[in-house]
């Protein structure tokens, strides 16, 4: 797979959407949809991506697309897929169709978690992609279950007493893997090859698949829009966001994470990550420097445990 070949694929998400300049969400969505040449139906949870790509009477979608609410995109696609199975069995349709869901971290980690868990347990055939920008961005940067410790949001602001969010985020990818589904992964848009390949696997694998993608948000993370891809790479290089996949019960680190695991690439300090975004700027104050240390320790701990799972 190379970019020249990919440049011939039809654009399934077109321009004219109203996401902020430099938003990672459309970059991710384009790459995910390059993961298959088969027809797809897309379901979307409420959030930045949904409102910005479907501002009536305009749509940025060149493929069938449906949004019904915030907390239920997995159920929405379950219904579409159930109809597909039924109509196919009755010979009312013949074409092969694939199903992809996009949801933010709020939709995925928090309010729609039950819907996702239920749809995975039922075994519907779909790929769920989480745009993890680590907060509720559409409603103005509120804390979510994915917001990292030490990040300032509008509902866990940094103040004189608190450094921002007090808790570590939940490890949703591992929680999803605990469903023992056929395929799950973490990815980043800077490594397009890795993300497209994971999307291809997720779409082609029969049954449910899940990919959690780090999604820099210039507005919420307070960084320049031009840095979006550079930051998604930094998240991987610091092991804040390792690239890995879980396939048929096997764990595997991929991309830069594999090279770091093999000692072929430097594991950068978390401080580089914290210094790159306005949401962490309070952590540079000496008062909150223990928090930065705790974050580094947590990243190290999670990284070591991931390597164990990968038998490395």
């Amino acid at each position: 797979m190379n970019l020249k070949e990919l440049s011939h694929t039809e654009e399934r998400l077109v321009e004219g959407h109203r996401l902020c300049a430099g938003c990672a969400e459309p970059i991710i969505a384009r790459q995910v949809l390059m993961g298959t040449s088969k027809p797809v139906v897309v379901a979307n949870a409420t959030g930045c991506f949904e409102v910005s790509t479907s501002n009536y009477p305009f749509t940025s979608w060149n493929v069938p697309w449906i949004h019904t609410a915030f907390e239920n995109a997995p159920a929405t696609i379950s219904g579409v897929e159930a109809a597909y199975n039924s109509l196919k069995r009755q010979n009312k349709i013949s074409e092969e169709v694939k199903f992809v869901v996009f949801g933010g971290d709020g939709a995925t980690y928090d309010i729609g978690f039950q819907s996702l868990s239920g749809a995975i347990e039922r075994g519907h055939d779909f790929l769920y992609v989480c745009f993890n920008n680590e907060a509720y961005m559409n409603t103005g940067i509120q804390r979510s279950g994915a917001t990292p410790k030490g990040a300032s949001t509008t509902t866990c602001p940094s103040g004189t007493c608190t450094p921002g969010k007090k808790e570590f985020p939940k490890d949703l990818t591992r929680i999803i893997i605990a469903h023992d589904l056929p395929y799950a992964a973490q990815a980043s848009p800077h490594n397009w090859k890795d993300l497209i390949e994971k999307s291809r696997k997720g779409i082609d694998t029969p049954g449910p698949a899940f990919i959690n993608v780090i999604s820099p948000c210039p507005r919420g993370w307070r960084h320049d829009g031009s840095q979006t891809i550079a930051l998604s790479k930094l998240a991987v290089e610091t092991c804040v966001w390792p690239l890995y996949e879980y396939e048929n019960g096997e764990w595997r680190v991929t991309g830069e994470s594999l090279r770091i695991a093999e000692g072929k690439k430097e594991k950068r300090p978390v401080m580089d990550w914290l210094n790159s975004q306005g949401r962490f700027k309070q952590l540079t104050k000496s008062k909150f420097s223990p928090v930065a240390d705790e974050i580094q320790q947590n990243v190290d701990k999670k990284w070591e445990s991931l390597l164990k799972l990968c038998h490395m």
Partner: peptide
């Protein structure tokens, strides 16, 4: 591959410029 707004124009596998009608100038 990284443009969020499909605003890098490609023709016959060559980069041929920008779609200024939609490019948001993110950089």
């Amino acid at each position: 591959i990284y443009c969020p707004d499909n605003s890098v124009m490609v023709k016959d596998e060559k980069m041929v410029g920008f779609k200024y009608s939609h490019c948001k100038g993110c950089g």
